[in-house]
């Protein structure tokens, strides 16, 4: 039986934390997309997901319970 996936995302300095739950594994692209939708203030192409200091690729898939830091790469312009 597949275990439940729960991924929580938080951007430093933002009050918005988003937790996504699913019975399946979740792709980083999907999680970041959802974060952007819910929390605003960030543009998908300008952020990355970081877990334990490692930048996660958009195509990576996470399963189980994870805490993800959203890091903004592009500020300004």
């Amino acid at each position: 039986m597949q275990s439940k996936t729960r991924i929580c995302l938080k951007l430093a300095g933002s009050e918005c934390t988003l937790c996504i739950e699913s019975s399946n594994c979740i792709s980083i692209a999907y999680a970041l997309d959802k974060y952007m939708e819910e929390c605003g203030r960030v543009d998908l192409e300008h952020i990355v997901a970081v877990e334990g200091g490692r930048i996660l690729g958009l195509n990576e898939v996470l399963c189980g319970e994870k805490e993800i830091t959203v890091v903004r790469l592009v500020r300004g312009g």
Partner: peptide, 23 residues
């Protein structure tokens, strides 16, 4: 955090373009 001015000072002192920041 990278949201802070301390981070901007680090980028400007290391010196790295803010558009190439990878955390």
């Amino acid at each position: 955090s990278t949201e802070s001015e301390a981070w901007a000072a680090i980028m400007d002192s290391s010196v790295v373009c803010m558009f190439n920041d990878l955390g």
